[in-house]
């Protein structure tokens, strides 16, 4: 799998629900269909809930990766406006 270069990156470390998804959703809304958002977070629950919510909203989850002891990186492709 080739490495995807995101069109936009957000860092939501330190945020908890519901901020985590709210910030991610607002970021996706501001992008064009086909573009990729990368999210850096350290709230474990959000590493599961954000991908699920994004899929419910019609977006494509490309990557969910634990990058170190505390952080996750998600990549979401905007499929639906």
């Amino acid at each position: 799998m080739s490495e995807m270069i995101p069109d936009k990156k957000i860092n939501i470390k330190g945020l908890v629900c519901p901020y985590t998804f709210v910030k991610s959703k607002l970021a996706i809304e501001s992008m064009d269909v086909g573009q990729v958002l990368e999210i850096l977070l350290d709230y474990e629950e959000a590493s599961r809930s954000i991908p699920k919510s994004m899929e419910d909203h019609g977006q494509k989850v490309l990557k969910v990766e634990k990058v170190n002891d505390t952080d996750w990186i998600l990549q979401i492709r905007k499929d639906k406006d």
């Binding site: 519901p18 998804f21 709210v22 959703k25 607002l26 809304e29 501001s30 419910d56 909203h57």
Partner: peptide
């Protein structure tokens, strides 16, 4: 905002 029908817009 988290409702698909509403959102930030």
């Amino acid at each position: 905002i988290i409702l698909p029908e509403v959102g930030g817009k």
